[in-house]
Amino acid sequence: MKQKIREFIFNELIFVAEPENFSDDDDLLEAGLDSMGIMRLIMHMEEQFNITLPDSEIDPDNVKSFNALEQWILQHKT
């Protein structure tokens, strides 16, 4: 799952020079993920993993790293 999110973020939303050195805890917001990027990411994840992510949970804490994103998705996967 994290690999799929990685691919989408690094191919579509932000560019990092060495993605293999970007850890699952590194800060995506500092790396350039912004409000437009978050919106596209959420729509993509909802479609890809067939889940609904509540608007009320969209927050820097849930999207700041790959680990945070995975946690967030797992909470909504039944």
Partner: peptide, 22 residues
């Protein structure tokens, strides 16, 4: 190598100016 070459850009350009693809 691309990755190594463009690494310093992060320190030189504002976030909204960073290229999203190379």
């Amino acid at each position: 190598k691309l990755a190594e070459t463009i690494k310093p850009l992060r320190q030189q350009l504002a976030p909204y100016m960073q290229p999203c693809k190379f």
